[in-house]
Design a protein around this nucleic acid. Sequence first.
DNA 1: TACGCGCAAAATTTCGAAAATCAAAGAAAA
DNA 2: TTTTCTTTGATTTTCGAAATTTTGCGCGTA
Lengths: 229, 229
Amino acid sequence: MAAQDADIFDDMRHRLITGEFGYGTKLRAEKLRHDYNCSASTVREVLFRLSTVGLVEFQEQRGFRAPVQSVERQHELTHMRILLETEGACLSIRMGGVEWESRLTAAHHKLSHIETRVRSSGDLIPLLGLWSRAEQEFHETLIDACGSGLLMRTHAVIYEQFRQQLVSAETNYGYFPENIREHQAILDAALQRNEDLMRVCVNDHLARNLTRPMPRKAQPEALGKSSAI
Amino acid sequence: MAAQDADIFDDMRHRLITGEFGYGTKLRAEKLRHDYNCSASTVREVLFRLSTVGLVEFQEQRGFRAPVQSVERQHELTHMRILLETEGACLSIRMGGVEWESRLTAAHHKLSHIETRVRSSGDLIPLLGLWSRAEQEFHETLIDACGSGLLMRTHAVIYEQFRQQLVSAETNYGYFPENIREHQAILDAALQRNEDLMRVCVNDHLARNLTRPMPRKAQPEALGKSSAI
DNA sequence: TACGCGCAAAATTTCGAAAATCAAAGAAAA
DNA sequence: TTTTCTTTGATTTTCGAAATTTTGCGCGTA
């Protein structure tokens, strides 16, 4: 029985991202232990580890619960993703080589293939799992030549919470055509190595998740950027 | 006894930030339990929670250890701090009111007072605790009108790790005069509500940590055998 | 000498129950 | 009726030991 803990962790993560638990629900170790027939302590540990990546919230003396969904939270997650992903993508442009380009192209190809199938079928749901993984891989590849493991790990954490928020919204197809175009635009910006364009593309792609726009200055993105790592 | 867990957490955090544990040292619950006389499980939990904020690293089936110090890590932390803090500060300028200005001024005043004392005595060490808290409060106040709890929490996590990295370097006084000037400049930028200037100031203030090499030797027993400190 | 195998010690994880803490319902006082 | 106190039930935290996994070391073999 190897790595029981890890299995439970993965399964719980899946259940959380999938939205199985109502947002804000209390996650009681004593209940959950039956799903995996293990002890409560083991579940407790898993919950701690899930809180490490922001998928559950922990409060001293009052246990764990699934995070509450709210417009504010959604906005904060989106905003943070924009911040991290534009930075990561621009750094990748600066530091990544042909090898990065090719990996990104590959990831995009896979994603694109799935998205085309979705478009022609008109129904996202049966391919949701596949698409979800492919999108994640594309976005992770986009920033993975940035040279900062910390940036990537932080982004991964935000990304998962973001996905947790969106899971219900995504299932109703909605903005798929735009999605396809935007992913293409991001790939193009990368291959052109155009950082400013990249900023715009990433922003457009993600900003749709803002029902209410973040307060922004009228003037375009400032030029004085932070120095490279 | 109330909140035993929390006490241990705070104490361990302090010990970690203080650099008491050699970087990369294994943190064995079985050893640590004697320091607090509690069970190993309790220590284990605390370690999990510390890993939530990046102060210790956890690896499946091979326990916990204090993070290894390295130039790369230092650079990644610095870079991330710049990213988060410029964004947070600019958002605060955009969204914060007079009330924010006054809080920031207050925090700066406290910090400034301590820094002046340090300068005239020429020795940081006796005031290190005070100064450290004041600096943290200043930087936290700087971004605390940004409107995103997520941004602030993320920044707090990075900040602590950053401090953990610097703890030894800070104690040798070094760049104090510049520090004073830079904190003033940041306050000025805030009161002028000049975002571009703010970006420059925050960048200058933090970027100094990019060139400075790590002043600490690698821990010989970091991997493999036990041989505690 | 180098390499692989297996045993023993050390470290980590898991367990079920006891102890501590919190929250809700009910009783007593105003 | 409202407020405050107390008891009771539920939940969370802590414990020490047993089960599992990793690691270190010695031994035999090429």
